[in-house]
């Protein structure tokens, strides 16, 4: 059994209002020097497959990410 982590992020150029809201809140808390915040999601998957990363990439292409507005990356955990 392997574990992989999928990170899905809004694509550059796609407005990320959630990131903007968090950015504003960080500035109000006094964190200076923050120039950009983007919010995405992380999906951890336990899978039994010969190539778990390739399997997760196919999952991203077919369901986990919308290529029009999101980019993804897959990282093996174990």
């Amino acid at each position: 059994m392997s574990r992989v982590a999928v990170t899905v992020m809004p694509r550059q150029g796609v407005l990320d209002p959630q990131g903007q809201a968090v950015h504003g809140a960080l500035e109000r808390l006094g964190f200076s020097g923050v120039s950009d915040v983007r919010v995405g999601k992380r999906i951890e998957i336990e899978i039994d497959a010969p190539d778990p990363v390739e399997a997760a990439e196919e999952m991203c292409d077919r369901l986990l990410a919308n290529a029009l507005i999101e980019d993804y990356s897959v990282e093996p955990l174990s």
Partner: peptide, 16 residues
């Protein structure tokens, strides 16, 4: 849109 029957995608409203 998600099914690919229409072009584009719907994202979170700008005003959140």
């Amino acid at each position: 849109c998600e099914a690919g029957l229409l072009p584009g995608a719907l994202r979170t409203n700008a005003a959140l």
